[in-house]
Design a protein around this nucleic acid. Structure first.
Lengths: 211, 211
DNA sequence: CGGTTAATTGAACGCATTCAACACGAGTGG
DNA sequence: CCACTCGTGTTGAATGCGTTCAATTAACCG
């Protein structure tokens, strides 16, 4: 657990935000920051899961990313939040002003940390591009489940988001997601104990399906 | 022209790379840097157009971005190039070692510039995500043409890449791209003077189609 | 228990793909 | 100048995947 955080946070931004941040509670679907708000604070997930999303002009919803315990979010390419952030379930988030972090660690370390976090965002975005641009429904869902299960190597895995969130994230409809999950379960690749909890039965098969 | 460069390069990275860089010539489809190579240099397009691309395990090709005159490329989230870079047409590229830039401008300015460029990459990636995740073929092609035409407000616009590159970039097949272009032309929204040169006839219609 | 929301399933449709044939343009050599 | 070829782009017909719309079922919570 500690190792994971260290690996994903070589510049210490997550640690600093966690240390300086004020813990705040958010309930299911509560907004943590809004779309088009000015960027002023940094956030770190302490408990629960957070999603970033935005709505396009024609009403379609796009999920930016899902953030899990330890992850930092609130970084944006520009001065405004391009995405809103909401708690998926009841969550605890450490919140701190950017200026406070800047003051605490100095400008050089701050920039380095922001750069590092931005790089990680870019990395995720590019991985996601491959999924959306070139993968079939089964491949998308399989990749997604692998990503979730990868966080907890074996045993039952929590599926913190609903089908609609999955669908918006994967660029599919809720019906296709549902059908695909049913199919994967029918093929004994994964097994759902409940709607929000599953276990990988056949890792090689899942990897093959994720292509 | 100068204004455009300034707007897109507030931290001067493009200017520095252009100034320090050694101009190199690349012919059509020639590789500028390879996939999985270590990141050691920065590049700036002087003349021509450059594409970044990578091939997945199963042989599908993904286009990262297209870079035009003035654009900086060669930035990556990690220590290795996730994408290869190739010249689309005969091009001139200014090449400079990262270490040389670092030494020339100092660590603080270097980091700021890299951060800024990385942010722009992230911005492009997220815009692209919206296209790939939620848009139809017509919307994708229309958006793409708008993006190209936006660089040169009016008159004939150069289409520097072939249909296959467009298709890979937009997550479509070459046939669908071709059909869509034909359709847009039939609807008098755009007009192709030749295969690689077009003009926007109805801006409002094109914007509407791009959604 | 109902009442409500979320998820699944079914059937028909439509868009993009696939596979195949054809057109076009540029370059080459007769 | 024409014939030939090769690469690239276009067009056609059939298929299939994911969507759409609608109905049903399951889960959750009082």
């Amino acid at each position: 657990m500690t190792l994971l955080v260290e690996v994903r946070d070589p510049c210490g931004l997550a640690e600093v935000v966690g240390r300086l941040g004020v813990p705040m509670q958010f309930s299911r679907d509560e907004e943590i920051h809004g779309q088009d708000e000015p960027v002023a604070r940094l956030f770190r997930v302490v408990r629960g899961v957070v999603r970033t999303s935005r709505v396009t002009i024609d009403g379609r919803r796009q999920i930016g990313e899902f953030y899990y315990a330890g992850d930092v979010f609130g970084l944006e390419p520009g001065p405004l939040h391009r995405f809103a952030a909401e708690a998926l379930s009841d969550s605890e988030v450490a919140v701190v002003k950017r200026s406070a972090v800047l003051q605490a660690v100095g400008e050089a370390a701050f920039n380095a940390a922001i750069l590092d976090a931005t790089r990680r965002e870019l990395d995720m975005a590019q991985a996601h591009l491959l999924v959306l641009g070139r993968k079939s429904a089964v491949q998308r869902v399989a990749s997604f489940l692998m990503g979730l299960a990868g966080r907890r190597a074996a045993g039952a895995v929590d599926l913190p988001m609903g089908r609609q969130d999955m669908a918006d994230y994967l660029g599919l409809t809720i019906e296709t997601v549902s059908r695909t999950l049913t199919q994967l379960q029918g093929d004994r690749v994964v097994e759902f104990a409940s709607l929000r909890r599953f276990q990988v039965r056949e890792w090689p098969a899942l990897e093959a399906l994720a292509a």
